[in-house]
Design a protein around this nucleic acid. Structure first.
Lengths: 150, 150
DNA sequence: GCAGATCGTGAGGTACGCTAAGGATGTGTC
DNA sequence: GACACATCCTTAGCGTACCTCACGATCTGC
């Protein structure tokens, strides 16, 4: 059921793309966070770990920038990942202020194994789509990442 | 920079669609939440209000189900929206346990006006895309919503 | 009536962002 | 060399948003 709209309201006959995209993203994000595995690694930590996995060693500041969060937020994520043994921190060779965060072998194993397991829910949903729909989502992921990234 | 992969690891030469979609959604969601307007209405509240706007009066339980959250979480959202005067609660005509939550005229005005203003950031980003990319996102929003919805 | 199911709510906990402020290190200027 | 200033990371504190567990009120079947 939808509320009747003014006859004069013709410039927006249905929810805008922004509205629909926002709702879709918020909803999917909630579902993704709700997928708890027994492991105590959170979605935010996985996201940062994947970033390090894909980009190689980074400083905390660089990692925060790539993830689009403020440096203080990343500090806690790195600390949790370090406690899990998934990343290590070593001093920067030339700049004593900075540090280098790097994925450990165990972290790489985790990315390749646990992460996939964690994404089982999403994988199942994606598997239920047809090829063309998956192609749409693949392109959408690129576009969204470009839009939100940086 | 990417870590070299095992030669034998050919079944997944790049991050899976699930991985990329998850990263894109998490990142965009963070950006959306970071868009604070002066109004004190949060993204979660807007999402629920939009749902009521589109579907008509619902009980708290139905609303929670549509948004994909647990009923206790929705209780607080409804209370906040009621405090803003955007929704009203009236008793269920036949079932004393339930309640009916409905958008007020002010709430409808808010959805049509303030929500769009709040989405200015996303609108600007979307405007920078070309027609074909927006079409991809429109379809993707439908697909994601169907995947995450219910 | 009364037991059990259902619905909404209250309480408490965790995750995850933010801003503000502090401490350590680098850098430019005199 | 010493000082002022910038930069980087971290700590502290706050707010939002979700969860689970537990409770009271109400409906339903016997």
């Amino acid at each position: 059921m939808r509320y009747a709209k003014d006859v004069s309201d013709v410039e927006e006959p249905e929810p805008s793309l922004a509205s629909r995209l926002r709702l879709a993203v918020v909803r999917l994000n909630r579902r993704l966070r709700a997928q708890r595995t027994d492991s105590s690694v959170t979605l935010t930590q996985i996201s940062a770990l994947s970033c390090l996995y894909n980009w190689g060693p980074l400083t905390p500041g660089e990692l925060a920038a790539k993830e689009g969060v403020q440096p203080p937020s990343m500090t806690r994520v790195i600390a949790a990942l370090e406690e899990h043994g998934f990343v290590t921190r070593r001093p920067h060779p030339t700049d004593g202020r900075q540090a280098i965060v790097e994925v450990t072998d165990e972290g790489r194993r985790f990315v390749r194994a646990e992460v996939c397991a964690r994404e089982r829910w999403l994988d199942q949903r994606l598997a239920a789509l047809d090829t063309e729909e998956r192609a749409v989502l693949t392109r959408a992921a690129e576009i969204i990442d470009r839009m939100a990234g940086q």
